[in-house]
Every structure is written in structure tokens, then in C-alpha cells.
Amino acid sequence: MSGQFVAFFILSLLTIGGAVFMISLQKVVHQVVALAFSFLSIAGLYVMLEAEFVAVTQVLVYAGSISILMLFGIMLTRHDAHEDTGRGKFKFLAFIVVAAFFVLVFMGIQTMNIEGTPANFSQQNNVLEIGKLMFSQYVIPFEIMSVLLLVALVGAIILAKREADDK
């Protein structure tokens, strides 16, 4: 068992654990923190794949910006922290379904026969290639996403102002 396998296993467990905590925690702020934790673990997996630029982008955009934007949206809008979502009724059944799915996926992965040689990316400068693609072919979707995030933040502020005026 190599160190790379152990690191992958730990990062995978942290990613899945963050996702499970995100859907199982009751408070929205705790869910956002668990989601950010999962995003950071995914960035670690990108580092293992030697995609450093994608890992840094993952940390900056998802773990940083999206999580902060979600927290601002939560803080700016009114919500009832003591809502009864009815999650406790089917927790055991959900656990059984998730465990069965995990076992099926694990068995499927273990029985796969993957042959071939690993790719050698050390000769390529992936940051240069991503930069060329980003600013030539994908500049419009990149700018549209920035406008979309700005509109979401302005919308949250407008909703919070309307709710404050209604009081």
C-alpha cells in the first residue's frame, strides 16, 4: 500500500464525509461549512492528479467564494432556524439505502478491469493551456458566470430589504 493510495483514501473519505454532513446537518451555516470542507478535499484530490491550477481554482472559487456567497445569502435573508423538516422519520431507511449503494459501487469498482498506461502530464504546462482556452474559447461563459454570481448576491440583498420593510 503506497502513500499515494493512503492519501487518496483519506481525501476521498473527507470528501464523502463532508457531503454526508452537508445533507445531514440541521443548521444551514453548518451545512455550508461541511460543503466547504468537501470542496477543500476535492482540491486535494486535484493536487494528487497534478492539476495544481484546477486545485487552486477549486479553493478560490468554490471553497472560498461560493461558500462566502452562500453565507451572505443566508445572513441576508430571513429564515426560521427551528423549522421541522421531518428528516427523522426515514433516517434508518435512508441509511440502509445509502449503505447498499456504497456496497454496490465498491463491489463494481473492485471488479473493474482497467488496463492501460497512465498518462504522463509532466511535459505539458497545464496552466498555460488552461489560460489559452479560458481567454480564447471560453471567455463568454466565464464572464456570464461572474454576472450570474453578482445577480444572485444583488437578489439576496433585495429580498432581505423587502423582508425588512414588511416588518
Rank of each mutant, 00 (worst) to 15 (best):
S41I: 01
S41F: 04
I42T: 08
I42A: 02
I42N: 05
A43R: 07
A43C: 11
A43V: 05
A43T: 03
G44H: 07
G44L: 05
G44Y: 04
L45W: 02
L45H: 08
L45T: 01
Y46G: 00
Y46D: 01
V47M: 14
M48S: 04
M48K: 08
M48Q: 15
L49W: 10
L49S: 13
E50Q: 15
E50W: 14
A51P: 00
A51W: 13
A51M: 15
A51G: 09
E52V: 11
E52G: 09
E52H: 12
F53L: 13
F53Q: 10
V54A: 15
V54Q: 09
V54S: 12
V54M: 11
A55H: 06
A55R: 13
A55L: 06
V56H: 03
V56W: 13
T57K: 04
T57P: 00
T57I: 11
Q58D: 00
Q58Y: 02
Q58S: 05
V59M: 06
L60V: 14
L60F: 07
L60M: 14
L60W: 05
V61H: 05
V61P: 00
Y62D: 01
Y62F: 04
Y62G: 01
Y62C: 03
A63T: 00
A63G: 05
A63R: 04
A63H: 03
G64V: 02
G64L: 08
S65R: 09
S65C: 14
S65F: 12
S65N: 12
I66Q: 11
I66H: 05
I66S: 07
I66R: 10
I66L: 09
I68R: 02
L69R: 07
L69P: 00
M70T: 06
M70E: 06
F72Y: 08
G73M: 09
G73C: 06
G73E: 01
G73F: 03
G73Y: 04
I74L: 06
I74T: 11
M75V: 12
M75Y: 15
L76K: 13
L76T: 11
L76H: 00
L76V: 06
T77S: 05
T77M: 10
T77N: 08
T77R: 15
R78F: 11
R78H: 13
R78L: 08
H79C: 03
H79I: 09
H79A: 11
H79F: 15
H79S: 10
H79P: 00
D80M: 07
D80N: 14
D80S: 13
D80P: 02
A81N: 13
A81F: 10
A81E: 14
H82S: 14
H82A: 15
E83M: 13
E83N: 07
E83V: 15
E83K: 14
E83P: 00
E83R: 11
G86I: 01
G86L: 04
G86P: 01
R87T: 10
R87H: 13
G88D: 07
G88L: 14
G88W: 02
K89L: 07
K89Y: 12
K89F: 04
K89W: 06
K89N: 09
